[in-house]
Design a protein around this nucleic acid. Structure first.
Lengths: 205, 205
DNA sequence: GTCTATAGCCAGATAGAC
DNA sequence: GTCTATCTGGCTATAGAC
């Protein structure tokens, strides 16, 4: 039995580190700022996590671990292709509206630390999408959807869901949307993004 | 007349800085590494650009200035909506295949330096997309496309074009594509992404 | 314009008291 | 476990010779 009392400091640190790392990234973050946000002392960070690098990895793995299973659960469910797309889009956008820094954090760190990927793949942290690909091929074969490379469809689904969060400043610059309008646009995407995808692939019978 | 000789060192520095900043970001980059890559001494960086911050801004503005006009030219052309989408998608993807670090660099820095946006907007560096929006509304009004919020369509177009570059490590992890397959997928997107968009909005008459 | 040498600062990490 | 004080290294920036 692992003792469960007194794990407050440790989880306070992780929570504070999450906030700071997600806002500032690995290099932009300061241990002092994390300590302040956790309401403790710098030395304690090292007592619990030994180094900045290790603290960062703990945060990253927790963040990634939060996203991956949600995706996996839907991808590998018994739902029809159309239902999967609607379900995933709606769930994902709702989730990320509550954790807006998450996608950018993950993407950014994966881009600057390619070794993370190998590690994550090796540890089987990536949900398998083979079932999804097969489903797309079957739907194509029976003429229910327009022929499409399953990888392309997967990329499109991810792009339409993730990019509005990562590209927010850029998109706001172009479209001149204010913050409120942007949030409404994101809300609308819970169904609008799925509609867009379904329309793109569906064949009238 | 501004003298044009002897601008080699200055442009060597900018080129080296571009490479390092795009790979490592503002905080990850080291002045020493930039100096090495430019084949000169650290002190010279300061001689030409005064500080890391100013050098960074020079790189960023050059990068952003490379992308924005291409987009603007197409958006504000006389092409039909469908042609604009096909033209933009094909041009953008071809361009970024040659400059793969660019989108991530721009997005990342816009996300961590919100003041950049205000500056860019103030300096009118963002192409105006009002003409595009109007075109979408007209096409909707005459029943040529499915009704869609023009902002949503714009977001979708950007997402489908930009995300495959920014999310590359993530997408490779999920789809298990190797590097060669991934590049082929990107090539295919020059037309496939546009097809996807057109199919999503087009109405059979 | 270009270099070497170094100042000055700041952040991560540690020692050691309590 | 938690704190204060301090070490240490690395990085930006500058001084000054050539």
């Amino acid at each position: 039995m692992v003792s469960k009392k007194d794990n407050n400091t440790e989880s306070d640190i992780l929570e504070a580190a999450k906030n700071v790392f997600q806002r500032k990234g690995m290099f932009g973050a300061r241990m002092q700022e994390i300590a302040n946000e956790a309401g403790i002392n710098k030395a304690l960070l090292h007592y619990y996590y030994r180094s900045k690098q290790l603290l960062f990895e703990a945060v990253f793995k927790q963040a990634f671990g939060l996203m991956a299973p949600k995706l996996s659960a839907i991808i590998n469910s018994e739902l029809s292709l159309e239902e999967k797309i609607r379900e995933f889009t709606s769930n994902y956008i709702s989730f990320v509206i509550k954790h807006p820094y998450l996608p950018n954090f993950i993407i950014q760190e994966l881009n600057s630390n390619p070794q993370f990927i190998e590690q994550l793949v090796a540890e089987k942290n990536f949900p398998d999408i083979a079932g999804f690909k097969k489903q797309v091929e079957e739907m194509t074969a029976v003429g229910k959807i327009r022929p499409i490379n399953p990888n392309q469809l997967f990329v499109n689904i991810m792009a339409l869901n993730v990019f509005p969060f990562i590209g927010k400043p850029l998109l706001k610059g172009f479209t001149k949307m204010d913050e409120k309008t942007y949030q409404e646009m994101l809300e609308e995407r819970k169904t609008a993004a799925a509609d867009f995808i379904i329309n793109a692939i569906k064949l009238e019978q």
